[in-house]
Amino acid sequence: MRLVFFGDVVGRAGRDGLARHLPEVRTRLKPDLIVVNGENAAGGFGITAQIAKEFYALGVDVITLGNHSFDQKETLAYIGNDPRLLRPRNYPPTTPGRGATTVETAAGRKVLVISVMGRIFMDPLDDPFASVEAELAKARLGGSVSAIVVDVHAEASSEKMAMAHVLDGRVSMVVGSHSHVPTADAQVLPGGTAYQTDAGMCGDYDSVIGMQKAEPIARFTRKIPGGRFEPATGEATVCGILVDTDDATGLAKRIEPIRVGGRLKPQWPPD
């Protein structure tokens, strides 16, 4: 099976980049499942129902979120009715929505997608490790599901790496999101789980992690907020990863970065 994951979509630039390049990704790579982190899609903060519908229309199968899950207040009203839109599973149990979902590919294979959020330098939430374990207790890779995708939305690379090693051999892939910069550590771990610390963002890289430069620079240099963070509006680089899995076991055979458009050096998975 071929799985594709794209990192945090930031603002209109990220949305336009995804709309521009996803058709080529689908034609060229022929993925069985596409997962996108959309937590910054609406003006850099959260997501709306309309944007989610636009992503689905592009061929996105599942949307994961993160610490900005509910920045758009309308999300509270609709997330519970959209099984393909995931907020982190380790939010309190009374939080609207869900943190995991099982979807079926066009070929009839079932894929479990889990979203969790880290706790280091982030809002205090329930234990993300225990949260993933609770989902894995209900599904078996290579048995009840053909693949398992885990999005770890976290600040600390150590926390993401620790999650990957805990899950190695039991899930198809663990990919990090949130830091908006693609890391160079794409690898298949010893037990057969694909891993990359951060997939990178889908956004304008002539920016401060997707935001127009002036305001974040002013806050760093003067320690005084002068206005709102606004998404950068230049051409986006669409960043993600491709993972090929073994049909019998669900474990990864390879992982390859994807970078298309914008300022970063392009990279397509080799044939």
Rank of each mutant, 00 (worst) to 15 (best):
V9D: 04
G11T: 06
R12N: 13
A13Q: 03
A19N: 03
A19K: 15
E24L: 14
V25K: 06
P31M: 11
I34C: 07
A41L: 13
A49E: 13
I51E: 03
I51K: 01
A57Y: 01
V60E: 12
V60W: 11
D61N: 14
I63D: 10
T64Q: 11
T64L: 09
H68N: 13
Q72T: 05
G80T: 09
P83K: 10
R84S: 12
P88N: 11
P96R: 13
P96N: 12
P96L: 10
G97N: 13
E104I: 08
T105W: 13
A106C: 00
A107L: 11
A107F: 02
K110L: 10
M122F: 05
D123N: 15
D127M: 07
V132E: 05
E135I: 03
A137G: 14
G142C: 06
G143R: 14
S146W: 01
S146C: 05
D151V: 02
V152P: 09
H153Q: 08
S157V: 09
S158M: 05
A162M: 13
H165T: 07
L167C: 03
L167Y: 03
A184P: 08
L189N: 08
A194I: 07
A199W: 02
G203A: 13
D204H: 12
M211Y: 14
M211D: 02
P216H: 15
P216D: 11
R219K: 15
R222I: 01
G227C: 05
F229A: 05
F229N: 13
A232T: 02
T233P: 00
T233E: 15
E235I: 07
A236W: 10
C239R: 03
G240I: 01
T245C: 11
T245M: 03
T249P: 07
R254V: 00
G261P: 10
G262V: 10
K265M: 11
Q267M: 14
W268D: 08
P269M: 11
P269H: 04
D271W: 00
